[in-house]
């Protein structure tokens, strides 16, 4: 009986993922209502449960794709993978009020620039503080503090060692997780209320996964505005990391 059920789930992976995620969202909605009396958004709880399951999956299988490494849940990999994630992000643009987006165009670009340079400076300085004082390692770890994609792309381009690459990816992952979980808690401090503020947030916080999950857990209506800016973040970082930023560090460090 159980075997047949398991076989059905494995053969219909994406459908099984819809059911599993539906269950997670249902449970988190109940937790939000009954335990926190609506003070913590259901989506925020669902994302934390997702991260918890990802940790459990990672420990269980030793793989890199969280829960998706278990064959029973492989559909999670498809459902939450880049293809469907980007498809759903693009779809949210349908709700954007063009006038609101245009008003924040310039400040969005400025925050995108700041969101690339500031984390890089912080990341590179801390790397230096921990003894990674060669320009290649400093740049790679600094780039990891932009996003976990910019880190390895930059590191590969300038020839970083595998352990520095791993550190760079870890930095980006930790950043994404902090943004996912921290945004709803810090929403008041960040003054996240208007489309313009969401665009500033998207540019500065960077990491698409962090921004998209963080805003989803704060206010679903702000998602398209933040995502619109944040999706340029990785491209800009990959552009600047191995070039301008690396040359600057090399010039500074001699």
């Amino acid at each position: 009986m159980l075997e047949i059920l398991q076989k059905a789930a494995v053969h219909n992976e994406l459908i099984a993922a819809f059911a599993v995620v539906g269950l997670i969202v249902l449970v988190s909605g109940q937790i939000s209502k009954r335990l926190t009396f609506g003070r913590v958004h259901g989506s925020a709880i669902a994302i934390v449960i997702g991260l918890g399951l990802a940790y459990w999956g990672g420990v269980h299988t030793g793989g890199h794709k969280g829960l998706a490494d278990l064959s029973l849940f492989s559909g999670i990999g498809l459902m939450g993978g880049a293809m469907l994630r980007d498809f759903a992000i693009v779809a949210t643009a349908f709700e954007v009020q063009a006038t609101e987006a245009r008003k924040a165009g310039l400040i969005g670009a400025v925050s995108l620039m700041l969101g690339t340079v500031l984390p890089f400076i912080v990341g590179a300085s801390i790397a230096y503080g921990f003894g990674y004082s060669d320009p290649v390692s400093m740049t790679t770890i600094g780039a990891g503090a932009i996003t976990y994609i910019v880190g390895p792309v930059t590191g590969a381009a300038i020839g970083a060692t595998p352990d520095v690459m791993a550190l760079s990816i870890a930095t980006g992952l930790v950043k994404a997780i902090i943004v996912m979980v921290g945004t709803p808690m810090a929403a008041r401090f960040l003054a996240l209320k208007t489309p313009r503020s969401a665009m500033v947030f998207g540019g500065l916080a960077g990491t698409v996964s962090g921004v998209s999950a963080g805003l989803a857990a704060t206010d679903r209506k702000l998602v398209p505005y933040g995502a619109l800016i944040a999706t340029f973040h990785t491209g800009l970082g990959c552009l600047m990391g191995p070039s301008v930023l690396f040359f600057t560090i090399r010039a500074l460090m001699g």
Partner: peptide, 9 residues
Amino acid sequence: VVAMAAQQD
């Protein structure tokens, strides 16, 4: 996004 969170490393 929840599915995405569930497959983070």
